[in-house]
Write a protein that binds this DNA or RNA. Structure first.
Lengths: 198, 198
DNA sequence: TTCAATAAATTGAATATTCATTCAAGAAAG
DNA sequence: CTTTCTTGAATGAATATTCAATTTATTGAA
């Protein structure tokens, strides 16, 4: 028997290499050859562990999504349990840590594009989106009537996506702090505008 | 000599076919063969008029960008020359007419992804983005102090992009009316929040 | 008007390239 | 010495590009 855990090590090696190559060459330029090179493994190993290129790409996206989800729950746990604070934590998490640089924004955009033509990736994307929305709704419900909460949740979600997209297009010159600040300003405006209507 | 204007007719034929094929098969699936088929021309004609596939794709994106720009100026011209009205017109234009359906949102997303790896397309994208921002700023400046105007302009731009992105991901179930309504609600909130500080 | 002569436009089979996948052989671990 | 892991050359499929041949349009002389 080979060393225990080789499989999970190799899988992660390949996923890391995949993300790196997509960052560098885009989704189109991410060939098995380049990925194998970046991982210092051979091309054959991909089908051995992931069945093929598509399987590797889906695993890589799953990894990105779960990283984001982990950032969210970690950051949320550290904040006071007040609705406004929790909302701010959600925003912070979505622009935090490993997530925030133009490179990883490009990777996200690439996956989004890909997701439109892969039911599996699309499903993953939807699950995450619904989680974000229901998360936002949960806290907004405590601050405003349900209709306004719904609208505000949609708007916050769109804002987050929009800033991400702009980050991807801005060639390294992303200012996560600015995006976070603008999102927070919006949230306070929305709370203020709908306050008292509760 | 051949009939005058054949060149521009053929170019448009190919661009239309390109957009149609991308809508239908995605960016990856948009092969020269399919595009030629959809345009009822031969594959050879592409390199004759555009030098190659890349040239055709760039021309198609140029066409989309200029269509959007035209929608904006057309709609703006019809509205009263009041700052708030003009802002609303900008939002309307960005979700109007030929622009608004999940298919064309997918096409946009595909081009954005592509633009990240093509300096030429990136430059085009930037020009358009700067035009949108300065357009927004021009009117916001009349409603609030410059710092708030800057922040609001960034937020509106991000909102527009964000709703587009969500439209692209939402598999045909896009509600442009809802996106427009939410953008407008935000604008009014922002005006209200920063009013009097003028 | 008709008819070559010429130029422009168009075709699509042939070619070249790129790349995912396969798998027989070999290396490494236990 | 058996099992697992890994390699990478060979294969085949997909597709962009090329270009010689063909078609179509234009011109102007008869």
């Amino acid at each position: 028997m080979a060393r225990l855990g080789v499989e999970s090590i190799r899988r992660q090696q390949l996923i890391d290499a995949t993300l790196k190559v997509i960052e560098e060459h885009g989704f189109q330029g991410a060939t098995i050859g380049k990925i194998a090179g970046a991982s210092e493994l051979s091309v054959g190993i991909v089908s051995h562990y992931f069945g093929g290129k598509q399987g590797l790409l889906e695993a890589a996206m799953r990894y990105l999504l779960s990283s984001l989800q982990q950032d969210v729950t970690t950051l949320m746990a550290k904040r006071p349990n007040a609705p406004r604070e929790r909302l701010m934590a959600i925003v912070d998490a979505n622009f935090s840590g490993a997530q925030t640089n133009a490179q990883s924004a490009k990777t996200w955009l690439a996956f989004w594009t890909q997701a439109m033509h892969s039911p599996d990736l699309m499903r993953l994307q939807r699950v995450n989106e619904r989680r974000l929305l229901s998360n936002l709704m949960f806290h907004l419900r405590r601050l405003m009537p349900i209709e306004q909460a719904r609208a505000t949740a949609q708007t916050i979600a769109a804002l987050i996506d929009g800033f991400w997209l702009r980050a991807a297009m801005s060639e390294g010159r992303i200012e996560p702090n600015q995006a976070v600040a603008l999102c927070k300003t919006y949230i306070d405006q929305a709370i203020h505008a709908n306050n008292g209507a509760k």
